[in-house]
Write a protein that binds this DNA or RNA. Structure first.
Length: 599
RNA sequence: GGCUUCGUAGUACAAUGGAUAGUAUAAGAGUUUCCGAAGCUCCAGAUCCAGGUUCGAUUCCUGGCGAAGCCA
């Protein structure tokens, strides 16, 4: 049990003992960390009780505080200030905590449970490379998956690849017409970029053809339909759906290039998946459950034969599910895939990491599943995240300001190199070690910058600011970690106090303020993990890791470790920094960020 | 037009309904005979507006204003 939980529990039983006639609930007890200007570590808010108990807040505080100090072994002092009961934790509570956990690599990880959850993320299209906006999705999905695993849940990381459709045919047609057999090997261009180039080429050509037709006197809308290259793409899509061998072969070949490219990018980002779904295999799903819904009268048919769902009772409108010709629409296959996932993995939770422009779509998806009586509906959760914008405007391919993900990664690594060299910190590394370090710093900075903001908020990515390795960044945390490792490398200090030493370990001196603050923060790690898991919010861990690094830096500045007054103090401080490094590594690992031992 | 989300120092972000609203940057002042100064210390600066609920509102509710997204 964490300290906060213990404080709540002991306060509850204390209140029940002191006021046997009243009834209390644990949810009424608010425990906060005590503000620095008051003495104490944790604060119980008294106002919620004064009304029913008909007493003055400060009287209650004195009574409760006195009881807690007398009857528990947690506290050594209490002080009531205007309705707040400030409690001081005994030093021995902290030192016992430290002895129990300082070298525990599982500290913060919850026991395994049976909750089965799928996190679908990344989900790229195979007609172009990943762009910068995708990075937030990838980092979020990966971090949330790790956080839920650490919370003890059984997690499947899934990637639903959008590998078919008119947009895929566009790049295929352009490659056929203009590619002259170009391959990633023959051109030296990464596969996803090569295919993306032909997608761009298609659109250029399409615009030209429209302009030519309009110049011939055609209406704009007619020209858009009749442009030969667009017709070629549509024919190709029909051939693809018929299973035309040549088209399928080209499709497999070009998608293969893209996957090779994506795999490289994922590897650099340190991101992986347990399960791939391909839209080419799922796009026909969903029709069946729609037809069943129609039979049961949950859905209705219009005169043209199209099938609809009426969501007006839910405050929405009517949604098309099957066209008059029986073909499905986008949401139909999502219904089918949701059911498939649920049945394949017996999911309790199915999390979709998708940008907030899909909020409406996801809401509709869940509502329809519910209406259709599909049990999967309950577990559907949209982890919606806001767009990443540039200071100059939105990052969308249409507007020409698109920033490529691979380029961004290269840029970050280059900047890490530049800054490290400028700071003169390259000594003692081999060339390979330096390259690995630059990747760790550059990609770490990028990940942290995108994860530190609460997912649902849109954010501005300022390249200039993101390369600033000072401040609220991964680099700051990495640096703190490297400093700790540097101390632990010293030969005149025992790397790790051995356990036999602990037996006789006694702490006669009081903890200093810095020591206490750092220990308090370390003790809060499990709470933070839980909060991050409950809120699906890696930003909680970003905040936590950063404040831990800050506390360490202050502690480090205040206290010499090698020259501590006593051996006990020296060992205590060593244990504190060993544990600090441990927790920093753990928290950051869940975010997908590694910490160097030297930098 | 309808629905959803967001409005906090110059800027970028925090704050289960709780104390004098935190942190980082940029601006100002210090700090290296002593374990890594990519550090630390000090100093300034903000809740869009108007109501309501509450002992207490950045947080919850209503109405404006502003921004983004989605649906027709």
């Amino acid at each position: 049990m964490t300290l906060v939980q213990q404080i709540k529990a002991t306060s509850l039983s204390a209140l029940q003992t002191l006021y046997p006639d009243a009834s209390f609930d644990i949810s009424q007890i608010a425990v906060n960390q005590t503000k620095p200007e008051f003495s104490g570590h944790y604060t119980v808010v008294l106002f919620p009780f004064v009304k029913s108990l008909r007493c003055k807040p400060n009287e209650l505080g004195e009574k409760l505080g006195e009881y807690l100090v007398q009857h528990t072994s947690l506290f050594d002092a209490h002080q009531t200030v205007s309705g707040f009961l400030n409690l001081s934790i005994k030093d021995s509570v902290f030192t016992n905590f430290l002895l129990n956990h300082f070298n525990d690599t599982c500290y913060g990880t919850a026991a395994k449970n049976d909750t089965r959850v799928m996190v679908e993320y990344s989900s790229p299209n195979t007609n172009k490379p990943l762009h910068f906006g995708h990075l937030r999705n990838n980092f979020l999905g990966f971090a949330v998956s790790n956080i839920l695993k650490a919370d003890g849940q059984q997690v499947v990381m899934a990637n639903l690849v959008n590998d078919r459709g008119i947009h895929i045919c566009k790049s295929m047609v352009a490659w056929q017409q203009f590619g002259n057999g170009a391959t990633p090997e023959s051109t030296g261009i990464k596969g996803d970029h090569l295919v993306g180039d032909y997608y761009v080429r298609f659109n250029d050509e399409y615009k030209k053809q429209i302009a030519a037709l309009v110049a011939d006197g055609k209406e704009q809308a007619v020209a858009e339909k009749e442009a030969p290259i667009m017709q070629a793409a549509q024919n190709m899509l029909r051939d693809w759906e018929k299973g035309d061998e040549k088209v399928r072969e080209l499709w497999s070949k070009m998608n293969g290039w893209v996957y090779t490219g994506f795999d490289k990018t994922y590897a650099r980002l340190g991101i992986s998946f347990d399960k791939y779904y391909y839209e080419s295999e799922t796009y026909l799903l969903g029709k069946k459950i729609v037809e069943e819904g129609l039979e049961r009268g949950v859905l209705f048919k219009k005169v043209d034969g199209s099938v609809w769902v009426d969501l007006t009772d839910e405050g929405l409108d009517q949604k098309l599910l099957l066209r008059g010709d029986g073909t499905s629409v986008y949401i139909t296959q999502d219904l089918g895939t949701a059911k498939l996932k649920y049945e394949e993995y017996k999911l309790d939770q199915s999390i979709y990491v998708i940008a907030d422009e899909q909020n409406y779509h996801m809401q509709v998806l869940q509502l329809i599943m519910k209406k259709l009586g599909e049990p999967a509906w309950q577990g559907i959760r949209h982890l919606s995240y806001g767009m990443v914008e540039l200071p100059s405007g939105k990052m969308k391919s249409r507007e020409g300001t698109v920033v490529d993900a691979d380029d961004m990664i290269d840029e970050m690594i280059a900047l890490a190199k530049e800054q490290t060299e400028a700071a003169g910190k390259t000594e003692g590394f081999s060339a390979e070690e330096l390259q690995a370090l630059y990747e760790m710093i550059g990609i770490g900075a990028l990940k942290f910058y995108l994860l530190r903001v609460e997912p649902k908020k849109k954010m501005i990515f300022d390249p200039k600011e993101s390369i600033d390795l000072h401040g609220y960044t991964a680099t700051f945390i990495q640096y703190a970690h490297a400093r700790i490792c540097s101390i632990l490398r010293r030969e005149d200090l025992p790397l790790m106090p051995d356990t036999s030493h602990f037996q006789s370990f006694s702490l006669t001196e009081e903890l200093t303020k810095s020591e206490g603050k750092l220990l308090l923060a370390l003790e809060q790690f499990p709470e933070m993990m839980k909060a991050a898991a409950v809120e699906y919010s890696p930003s909680v861990l970003c905040n936590y890791a950063f404040s831990l690094a800050q506390l360490f830096n202050s502690f480090y500045d205040d206290h010499p470790i090698a020259k501590a007054a006593t051996e006990e103090k020296k060992n205590l401080r060593l244990m504190i920094i060993v544990m600090t490094a441990q927790v920093l590594r753990h928290a950051m690992k869940l975010l997908g960020i590694r910490l160097p031992e030297k930098m």
